[in-house]
């Protein structure tokens, strides 16, 4: 009987620990800006996150300490069992927090998508050796200069649609490489993506193959730098948050500041990401870009790839930090889009 009573008290404590932990995770997520755990949409002031977390902790405490005094003042779990129930509550609450955050993230994103979706005229290119989307300018000079773009691994081509639309509005054609399959990122296969795209674009009458630029995001930026170092046909490069160093490929908790938990798993699963960064060797190849101006754009809040180690030591390199931006989202930032268009207007 005594054992059953202790288990009952333990389960009641587990319920308390679970709900208090839900609040705890919201407090931690707000404090450390862990996007993967936050329930409130991005950009909402921190005080709302703290209020939500504190309310959950307070409500759980009021219920447990206010109404369960009979159980609390009976012999309950010993210290090891107490720790077991508390840890179980924390772990269960963490899983729940991740799931709810994921669900709410989609809700907020679909609400935003309704208002931010931009129209674009694009052509899907699906050849045996090349997949991507070509965006042509509706007006301007013909043939048009073109910008070839590589997304972050795991991101669909739609992630670069904002930049593509901005470029077409500036009179450029834009070609977004479809590198959504994991196989696109195998080394050395990844090295052929830019040359194949440029070779294809050369065959199009609407495009001026002598005026080519390259844009990349994350590991895609490393690839763009490497491609430009090996192909003088690329006249200028914009690298958004390039990874550059293998140590940046294993950010651990910092991933959750930028993306949801499933996205973090996908992000890490790119074949030997650290080794790919080493083999691409973007940092060493920057020095080979003397005649091809390189603009490196970082989010000031980027915790995955801190820009502190980088400086514009190369003559043709410019480093531009963007206040308020993290590692992801740079490609959707209006300031970044206008920087990219301006850079290519100036250099190709």
């Amino acid at each position: 009987m005594e054992f059953r009573e202790q288990i009952t008290i333990g389960v009641i404590f587990l319920v308390f620990a679970y709900f208090a932990s839900l609040g705890f995770w919201q407090l931690v997520a707000t404090w450390q800006r862990l996007e993967a755990l936050l329930w409130l949409p991005r950009g909402v002031k921190a005080r709302w996150g703290y209020s939500l977390g504190s309310s959950l902790v307070a409500a759980a405490s009021l219920w447990f300490f206010g109404t369960r005094s009979e159980e609390i003042f009976s012999p309950g779990p010993a210290s090891s069992e107490f720790l077991f129930f508390l840890s179980a509550g924390l772990a269960l609450a963490l899983v729940t927090t991740v799931i709810i955050s994921l669900f709410l993230d989609r809700v907020w994103a679909s609400l935003q998508g309704l208002t931010e979706r931009r129209r674009s005229d694009s052509e899907l290119i699906a050849l045996k050796w090349l997949r991507g989307t070509l965006y042509l300018p509706s007006s301007g000079e013909a043939p048009s200069p073109v910008v070839c773009m590589a997304p972050e691994p795991g991101e669909g081509i739609e992630s670069l649609e904002g930049i593509a639309v901005s470029l077409t509005e500036g009179g450029f054609a834009a070609f977004s490489l479809d590198m959504s399959s994991q196989d696109s990122w195998r080394y050395p296969d990844a090295l052929v993506e830019f040359p194949q795209a440029i070779a294809y674009l050369d065959t199009r009458d609407e495009i001026d193959g002598s005026r080519v630029g390259a844009v990349g995001v994350g590991l895609g930026a490393d690839l763009a730098i490497r491609a430009a170092a090996e192909d003088r046909q690329i006249k200028a490069v914009v690298a958004l948050a390039p990874v550059m160093l293998p140590s940046h490929a294993r950010p651990g908790l910092d991933l959750l500041r930028e993306m949801s938990y499933p996205e973090a798993i996908r992000w890490s699963r790119v074949h030997q990401r650290g080794e790919l960064v080493t083999r691409l060797g973007a940092l060493e190849h920057v020095s080979e870009l003397d005649s091809q101006p390189l603009l490196i754009v970082y989010g000031e809040e980027d915790r995955l790839v801190p820009s502190a180690g980088l400086d514009a030591s190369q003559r043709a390199t410019k480093v531009k930090p963007i206040p308020g931006q993290g590692h992801r989202g740079l490609e959707r930032d209006a300031q970044v889009m206008s920087l990219i268009t301006g850079w290519f207007h100036e250099h190709i």
Binding site: F13, F16, W31, F65, F82, D254
Partner: peptide, 27 residues
């Protein structure tokens, strides 16, 4: 009675400790 029970302060100590896990501006 709130302070003496087996749950209130031990839970507070454990959650404070758990929060420390995430503290720090660098890895």
């Amino acid at each position: 009675r709130l302070l003496v029970n087996d749950y209130f302060l031990p839970t507070a100590l454990c959650l404070l400790t758990a929060a420390l896990w995430f503290a720090g501006s660098s890895k």
